[in-house]
């Protein structure tokens, strides 16, 4: 543990997070530096990944015309979350660096600030609050119920769910893997007789959950980015 007790404290998860960041940044830096008009294999992969965010998330949700402004933000969110998640299945790292609440929280705050800024830019501060808290097309008494619900859902539940969904998914995945491989280790080396055979089952389960975690890592990055895009899109439109 470096700088223990200070704000710069570096524990294992933080070190993995920094490592993941450096690897991600280096890979894309190299891809961008070597990028040519006619792509080679590596560039194709990078372009596919970037196009996935640009086309399948930004342009599909926000619309082709206005999506371009938000592509950098959404791309950053997607790849940051993906890199942080994927460390959970990298041998030797073995823990998602998004399984410590700071990271999901920071990403959620970025998303939160983004959709509020977009809303305020589109409608003005008052206009944004009015379209969000007092959606048109309902009789006024409904606002007594609707406004508190909208207030909580938009300004509290959105960032909270973004944070907790990602955090809990990653923690749960890590626990599952630890459970499977821990059990395998115990059954193989500590357990007696026939119980050793059960270790094969837990090992197979651990293998399956590793594959599942790769899928979850990508899925959670996708969901996080998709919801950010949806929130931005909602803020932009008038109700």
């Amino acid at each position: 543990m470096l700088f223990e007790g200070t704000v710069f404290e570096l524990n294992r998860i933080i070190l993995i997070r920094i490592l993941a960041t450096l690897v991600l940044v280096t890979l894309f830096w190299i891809a961008a530096s070597r990028a040519r008009l006619v792509p080679n294999r590596g560039q194709n992969v990078a372009e596919m990944a970037l196009d996935f965010v640009r086309v399948n998330i930004a342009e599909d949700i926000i619309g082709k015309d206005t999506a371009r402004r938000f592509v950098p933000l959404l791309t950053t969110i997607f790849f940051a979350v993906l890199a942080a998640n994927i460390t959970g299945v990298v041998p030797g790292l073995n823990i998602a660096s998004s399984s410590l609440i700071g990271f999901p929280l920071v990403m959620a705050v970025i998303s939160f600030v983004a959709f509020i800024v977009v809303g305020v830019k589109a409608h003005g501060a008052v206009g944004y609050l009015r379209t969000t808290l007092f959606p048109s097309g309902v009789p006024w008494p409904v606002y007594i119920i609707l406004t508190p619900i909208e207030l909580i859902s938009t300004f509290i539940l959105r960032p909270a769910t973004l944070t907790i969904r990602l955090l809990v998914n990653m923690v749960a995945g890590h626990l599952l893997l630890v459970l499977c491989f821990g059990a395998t280790h115990y059954l193989f080396f500590e357990a007696a007789g026939a119980l050793k055979a059960v270790g094969a089952v837990t090992l197979a389960a651990g293998f399956a959950f590793t594959l599942f975690e790769i899928f979850i890592a990508a899925l959670q990055a996708y969901i996080f980015t998709l919801l950010s895009a949806v929130y931005i899109s909602i803020s932009q439109e008038s109700h």
Binding site: V7, L10, R17, A20, F28, T75, T76, F79, F103, V106
Partner: peptide
């Protein structure tokens, strides 16, 4: 420190994607 390093990482990734990639 968790918040700090998360923010640093997000910032680095964001800058690289925004300005370079």
């Amino acid at each position: 420190y968790d918040i700090l390093w998360s923010a640093v990482c997000a910032l680095v990734i964001g800058l690289v994607f925004w300005k370079k990639v």
